[in-house]
Design a protein around this nucleic acid. Sequence first.
DNA 1: GTCTATAGATCGATAGAC
DNA 2: GTCTATCGATCTATAGAC
Lengths: 186, 186
Amino acid sequence: MTRVVTERLDVIPLLAEVFREHGFEGASLAIITDRTGLGKGSLYHFFPGGKEEMVAAVLADISAWFETNVFAALADPSDPKSAIVGMLDSTDAYFQSGSRVCLVGALAIDHVRDRFPDAIKDYFARWIDTLANALRCLGQNRSEARSLAEEIVAGIQGALVLARAIDDPEIFTTTIRRYKNRIITL
Amino acid sequence: MTRVVTERLDVIPLLAEVFREHGFEGASLAIITDRTGLGKGSLYHFFPGGKEEMVAAVLADISAWFETNVFAALADPSDPKSAIVGMLDSTDAYFQSGSRVCLVGALAIDHVRDRFPDAIKDYFARWIDTLANALRCLGQNRSEARSLAEEIVAGIQGALVLARAIDDPEIFTTTIRRYKNRIITL
DNA sequence: GTCTATAGATCGATAGAC
DNA sequence: GTCTATCGATCTATAGAC
């Protein structure tokens, strides 16, 4: 018999979407109870530390997802080129072709960055490091690889900002395609 | 005799810095009164619309500054190449080599974007349009110019996010230098 | 124009019944 | 585990004295 009971794990994706939409300060407990269907009592049962613990859980969940679905293939690539192209495809899918905000990036430029410095730092550092690793497997030297990896990760973040700013997700899609072509012709 | 009286115009840069640091939701009136030295009464005298009017005034101020100091030279360049290099220098100075957040970008990925859609859209659209114009003066065709302009503006935003995320402003400086080299060798 | 005092709403968080 | 009721703090905004 299937348990219908809400588990802590089931709540995290809902929390992620709320924080993506409203930011840390903007995501009130009223909104959170509304969107999760859980009362404050239940929320504090799962996350005794309140909003801060909720964000920490969301960040850990995001980190684990990227580790499995994005970083792993870059860190130990049998075929570096298709690993990078795969990363760009996963990224496009994850950010829903530019219509979904990057929560980690949003937290990074917010004042609350200082409450989750390691989670934010590690997410981007791991992205850059594994991408640079794949680029080195393609024959680039250490500094070339690192520079291009930083350019691509920053470019993705910037495209998300710009796409949302001028309300045109196409900008994101174009950016992903540009990097794909650049990798293919490498 | 110099008037020491605080005018509305004098308050705006202080407000800008508060919103940059704390975001819209995070910038409480308590913080604002503290940082401006003005009581709530005075603030609401200058900005009857409250925080929303304060942000609108800040956005108008930023827009005017960029129009004068950045966009004007790109829109009507006698020397397109040095106009673009000058834009990159001004940008580096304005964002204090990556240690200062872009308020317009921060608002864009926040939920409050929908309260200032035109100001945010116009800021980035004008940046892209004038930069693309300067690139066309350098001999690029319309679509090449637009594509590179979008890439550079997005790259700047992304570098700001990344620099703050991994707490390394050097990333921003490197990004500016990269674009400068790319323009010079165009 | 500037301040203090305060209204009225909402905030995060807790207590305790079930 | 889940809920409702509620706490004290803080929020934006207003009123009114000076």
